[in-house]
Design a protein around this nucleic acid. Structure first.
Lengths: 136, 136
DNA sequence: TTTTAGTTCATACTAAAGTACCAAAATGGT
DNA sequence: ACCATTTTGGTACTTTAGTATGAACTAAAA
């Protein structure tokens, strides 16, 4: 919230500066009107894209973003997470091993640890829980 | 694709008109420079919001809807689809059987048929493919 | 009515997945 | 250098998943 207010404050300040600058530039004839219009257009286009992205993020995209903090809270290691990604891609333990250049035994160890950390009985359940927790 | 080209064509046309109008208005002194800048700003802000919304829709909202037509095209039966849902919920064959009031054998039959229809080797791969095809 | 597709279930089998336990390297911070 | 954690991988085992095949029943379509 504080961040939002700060951003909007800076934005308004920048716009006022731009406004004054364009008037000054016009009067002193340093810049052509086309250039000024182009600058205004680009700036406001960018603001439109930015504002829209922000507001959509809050409502629709939450489920698309990965909660890295939760991964750490669950004490899931790097390698375990890579294995989880492999599972979500529908790979077998052997295939995950080939992808990560380790043996199938190693993958099984990671999977087993992953399941207990996610409190899952099966890899499919792990996927469902991981999606629910927004870590994949 | 054709639609996109049409929209962009009209957009460019509208901008050119706006451009010429602003120059004319300035020369003839009918409008103040502040008003023109404000119009440009509002128009480009709206364009920014519009473009952004369109591009986000294509990526995130389509994937939320189930393609029932594709399910029929793949010749996936009612019961097989119910089993697929069970798989996506992370259930074992036994648990799916309990949920649908059939034996584990029956579930295995459905799963096996489902895998060949989805061209998958494992249930996790079936999930990945089904998501890709937007049937779950 | 015969056919077709879907659902059900069983047996017997093979292949993966998952658990339990152990142990050796590698890594990273204090 | 030392400690804690991660990563690795093995053996032995149990459980679950998946295949192949055959068969019975149902409902709807031809």
């Amino acid at each position: 919230m504080k961040k939002t207010i700060l951003v909007f404050g800076l934005l308004i300040l920048a716009l006022l500066l731009l406004f004054q600058f364009s008037k000054y530039a016009l009067v002193s004839n340093n810049l052509k009107i086309e250039i000024i219009i182009a600058i205004i257009a680009i700036v406001f286009f960018a603001i439109g894209v930015f504002i829209n992205k922000k507001s959509l993020h809050k409502h629709n995209l939450v489920s698309k973003e990965i909660d890295h903090k939760k991964i750490k809270d669950l004490e899931i290691s790097n390698r375990e997470y890579e294995v989880l990604i492999g599972i979500s891609e529908g790979l077998s333990n052997k295939e995950i091993g080939d992808k990560l250049f380790v043996s199938e035994s190693t993958v099984k160890t990671h999977v087993s640890n992953l399941l207990s950390k996610l409190n899952a009985k099966r890899r499919t359940q792990a996927l469902q829980i991981a999606k629910d927790l927004q870590i994949i």
